[in-house]
């Protein structure tokens, strides 16, 4: 190769190198810029995401709270139409939670049952006033009408897709069934009765017996306990009666904190 040829090649190499180096310089500067901008952008996006997440969380909480309030209000309406008063619904809620917990249901399910069980008598909103508010005892025809409240409650709630309302539908439907098959409306027996129904039945009766009503004084504890022992495996699920006596102090503690104010 001639010197000229070599020089030309070196020149071209130099030019090429300069171009490459310039590009490299540009790239490095650029890279720096890109990283800086990206960091800034990502930080802002992160902030935005966090904000939105928080909004969603708060919305979720609000929905859950609204649901609880609606359900509780429905329960209260039902109670106001039955002859029960005061904190009955709240106590039943707490008792059903305790039963569910010691029966071994998962925590989330226990909490749901606590919210659903106050609606057990929701069907009573559909019972005519003349029957519902009748002073004194019901005759047989009236008793039959009263008993439809279980089916009515179920009919009202069963259409819902919400877990909580579906559970409430079961509770309304089965809270007057008895372990021995002599309850209503379907005369279900033993474990045919859903655990939610069995639990609410016992919680409801326990509270009704221990409360003063217009038509009856409160039973004393010994009388209730005696009745529970007799009805173990008859009216009530034996496993639940056992749980009741085993954790009696906890049930009584709730009863004390949620006592009806005597006027």
């Amino acid at each position: 190769m001639s010197d000229d040829g070599m020089l030309a090649e070196v020149d071209s190499l130099r030019e090429h190198t300069i171009v490459t180096l310039n590009k490299l310089t540009k790239d490095i500067k650029r890279q720096h810029k890109i990283m800086e901008r990206s960091d800034k952008r990502q930080q802002r996006e992160y902030d935005e995401l966090q904000k939105k997440l928080q909004e969603v969380e708060e919305l979720g909480k609000e929905i859950a709270q609204t649901q609880r309030e609606v359900v509780f209000t429905m329960g209260a309406i039902a109670e106001s139409r039955s002859k029960e008063t005061g904190n009955h619904v709240k106590r039943v809620a707490e008792y059903t939670y305790l039963f569910a917990k010691y029966y071994g249901l998962p925590e989330a399910e226990c909490t749901l049952l606590k919210q659903a069980s106050p609606m057990h008598d929701i069907g009573k909103v559909a019972i005519p006033d003349a029957v519902l508010n009748k002073p004194g005892r019901f005759d047989e025809a009236e008793r039959k009408i009263m008993d439809t409240h279980a089916q009515l409650g179920y009919d009202m709630l069963q259409g819902s897709k919400r877990t909580l309302l579906k559970m409430a539908a079961t509770v309304a439907y089965e809270h007057h069934e008895k372990w021995n098959g002599k309850g209503y409306p379907r005369q279900l027996k033993g474990e045919e009765i859903h655990i939610y129904g069995r639990i609410t039945a016992l919680a409801d009766v326990f509270d009704a017996l221990g409360s003063t009503r217009v038509y009856k004084p409160a039973w004393d504890d010994e009388r209730i306990f005696k009745m529970f022992r007799e009805e173990r495996g008859e009216h009530f699920d034996p496993a639940l009666i056992d749980i009741f006596f085993e954790h009696l102090d906890e049930f009584l503690a709730f009863r004390d904190t949620l006592k009806d104010v005597v006027s």
């Binding site: 650029r30 890279q31 890109i34 990283m35 901008r37 990206s38 990502q42 996006e45």
Partner: peptide
């Protein structure tokens, strides 16, 4: 709408 840093390089 959104892009990562290597996309930013790509846009260059």
């Amino acid at each position: 709408i959104y892009f990562n840093s290597s996309s930013s390089k790509l846009f260059f």
